[in-house]
Amino acid sequence: MDDLSYGAPPPRRRKRIFLWLLGLLAVYLVWEVVTWPDVAVLAHAHPRTTAFIEKYRGWGIFGPKKKVEWTWVPYSRISPSLKRAVLVNEDMRFFSHSGFDEEEIKASLQDAWTRKSLPRGASTITQQVAKNLWLSGSYNPLRKVKEAILTKQLEADLPKRRILEIYLNVAEFGEGIYGAEAAARHYYHRSAAGLTERQGAELSVALPRPRSWHPGVRSRGYQREVRYTLRRMAVARWLWGEI
């Protein structure tokens, strides 16, 4: 017997395996097409829930296991201070890029090296909207591909301010606290429209790690980031014209 062919499946079996895998791929692609979200509808309709909210809630026999604080408010009823704070921390070039910001990836790494800290998130706000609404927090390549496609669709179908409005309404600001209005009511007992510059900075700093960094925590690192955010906001006055 030829050593090179020892243990190899016969041609017919290889063909069956290939056809079986091809069939699985076809089923998967059909499933993705059928369940793919309607991105364009978000131009005039608010999402009823998000993937992250549903994951947090959990569902049992008698309904959701955890309570969520979430109230949608229009863009005009969110403080400009919070918008500016979120932009300087999360996506400074949001209004100029087309969904992805390669410069921010490089800048975040350089900034982390200078300040001897972990790099801030390099995902754009549009990418985070795609992830929060429809995907998960996993880092598998397939999820990243889907995120990239959805990001391009969001940028093509929605104006920038609408994307920012959605983000500010679905982002997590603490355990079970989603959106600017719920966060403002929970931490400051006021509406999102009435947030001050410092309050906007405090909430924006919570975004990368909302379960541990949020208004009220006694963390030197958190307070340091709030002060740093306020300094960046003072420099980025030009954002007033964008928001």
Rank of each mutant, 00 (worst) to 15 (best):
T50L: 05
R93V: 05
V88R: 07
V39H: 09
V226L: 00
A26T: 12
V30Y: 02
E181H: 02
P9V: 11
V73D: 03
K160T: 07
R198M: 14
W213E: 13
R198E: 15
R237T: 15
P11K: 03
L87A: 04
Y178R: 05
V86F: 04
F95C: 03
P159T: 03
S76R: 09
R84V: 06
S191F: 01
L135D: 11
A85R: 06
S98L: 09
A156V: 07
E155G: 02
I61G: 08
D38K: 08
L29H: 02
I149M: 14
E102P: 00
S96C: 08
T196F: 10
R14F: 06
K116P: 02
S76V: 07
S191T: 15
A130P: 00
K55Q: 13
V30T: 12
Y178C: 03
K131S: 09
L158Q: 07
F94W: 07
L22I: 10
L135Y: 02
W72H: 01
K152R: 13
E155Y: 09
P64F: 14
R48D: 15
Y222R: 06
K65Q: 12
G200N: 01
N169P: 07
W70S: 02
P208G: 11
F52E: 11
T50Q: 07
E172A: 08
G121T: 11
S108Q: 15
H189C: 05
L168M: 14
V30W: 04
R84W: 07
A206C: 00
A85L: 00
V30L: 15
R115A: 13
P64Q: 04
K160M: 01
W72E: 00
S219W: 02
A234K: 09
L150V: 00
L118V: 11
R231K: 11
A184G: 02
V30E: 02
K83E: 05
E165G: 00
N140G: 09
H44C: 08
T35I: 11
S191Y: 12
N169R: 06
L4Y: 12
R232L: 15
A112D: 10
A148F: 04
A112S: 12
I105V: 15
I61K: 14
S219T: 10
G221L: 04
F52Y: 10
G216H: 02
L158V: 02
A180C: 03
L239E: 08
E225K: 13
I163W: 04
L164G: 02
T124M: 08
V33F: 03
D2G: 06
W113T: 14
S98Q: 11
H46E: 15
A206P: 07
G121E: 01
S79L: 03
A8P: 02
A236V: 10
P159Y: 09
P208S: 04
I17Y: 04
K55C: 03
I53S: 03
S98C: 11
I17N: 11
A156M: 10
Y188C: 10
A192Y: 01
L203D: 00
K131F: 10
Q153L: 13
I78F: 09
R13Y: 14
K83R: 12
D157Q: 13
K106P: 03
R218I: 01
K131M: 09
Y167E: 07
